[in-house]
Design a protein around this nucleic acid. Structure first.
Lengths: 213, 213
DNA sequence: GTTTGATTCAAACAAATGTTTGAATTTGGG
DNA sequence: CCCAAATTCAAACATTTGTTTGAATCAAAC
């Protein structure tokens, strides 16, 4: 990919992370990328197109890895249902570790995407559908199996909470000054991942064991 | 409170809910409230001041009720640690039920606040600190007791996830067209509350039982 | 070296932004 | 009824917004 395009994408991640889609401006992105104001429209089309490109540029390798890891785990288990924590770990780990070391924009990317998921614009909804739907369906199925195929409504709630907590955690990850709840240094990615996996697995298990009403 | 002020607050909730703080404009709020463009600046000061007022107007009664419920539960239990689900329920239930029946802006308010919590502007950080800090500290303590006072770091993570999941759930609550994961009708508040309480309690419990490293 | 296509640039575009102004209107107490 | 304060209003303010334009610059192939 073009040099200018990459500079724009990386600057855009930072701006989108801090200010969200609406709050980030073309000029703040281009000036911090050190390119001309018109460069975004020339290379990407519109501001929305830029956001989509940033989203895809980062999330697609993550989703590819997730799918591959799930395939591999199922192969190793000869098609039997996987332990719940294993499935949850496959959802979470690539999200936080894939980019570490490759470049340092990782923190910003997660926050940008977390905020983007909250946007209710049409382009964001269809982007989410295009990029995430297959992955969500696949992992819903895997989690359902791990939990012994409970009522499907429970899986729906579980996946909803899982996505909520990931969006929330992504939005705040790496942002040290963030509010919430003292004491926790959200830049310690490894510890965050461990606790996230434990929390989500425990939550899903509890829901699957709920009394039916 | 003045009639115009209330009309503005209610219109602002809707606009902030759909478009976030940056995405909502003074003119869209005033025109859907049926008041003059200058009314916001006259009655509230700035756009930020309006957001703060909306936030306080809704969240303060909720927090008052939360504190009262916690006091009452402790009194009934003669000061002994409460069951975890009870504490979690006190955090969650007032958030979703307080406004139901009183008016129908409830859904919008939750989404507006959920998105607002994601804003990284200074005014939002200090607003959060002013309005939420005491409540968070109090409930951190209560949850810690319910879990048998585990390592404080675990409570930190737990409260972080709890806040993440609430923000995420609020952001999407009542927004039917939302993405995420089919099958779940997020407007069925009662069922959502039950599942939320179960999920969060299960997650917190799992974290408290984690191996120390 | 010339030519062709891709890229960059400064400048301008119209529209939307939050806020202010000062005159008009409404309100309520004396 | 009158006055003074509070409120509403249309209009304008200066910025900022996303996007477009057309000339200038660059790159590479012939």
């Amino acid at each position: 990919m073009n040099n200018t395009k990459i500079k724009i994408i990386e600057a855009a991640e930072v701006e989108f992370a801090i200010n969200g889609f609406s709050g980030a401006s073309i000029r703040s992105i281009t000036s911090s990328a050190g390119v001309n104001t018109a460069a975004i429209n020339y290379h990407f089309g519109t501001k929305e197109d830029l956001f989509k490109e940033v989203f895809r540029y980062r999330i697609e390798p993550i989703n590819t890895e997730r799918m591959a890891m799930l395939d591999e785990a199922y192969a190793k288990n000869e098609g039997r249902p996987l332990p719940l924590v294993e499935v949850v770990e496959i959802i979470i780990r690539p999200l936080f570790t894939k980019l570490i070391g490759e470049d340092s924009n990782n923190f910003y990317f997660l926050r940008a995407m977390g905020k983007g998921m909250g946007e209710e614009r049409d382009f964001m909804k269809s982007l989410h559908r295009d990029v995430m739907q297959k992955v969500i369906e696949r992992f819903s199925q895997a989690i359902s199996e791990s939990l012994g195929n409970p009522d499907f409504k429970k899986i729906g709630y579980g996946m909803h909470f899982l996505s909520c907590i990931l969006v929330g955690a992504m939005m705040k990850h790496g942002n040290l000054e963030q509010m919430s709840c003292g004491e926790v240094d959200l830049t310690h990615t490894q510890s965050l991942i461990d606790h996230l996996i434990t929390f989500i697995s425990g939550g899903l298990k509890s829901i699957s064991e709920m009394d039916q009403k």
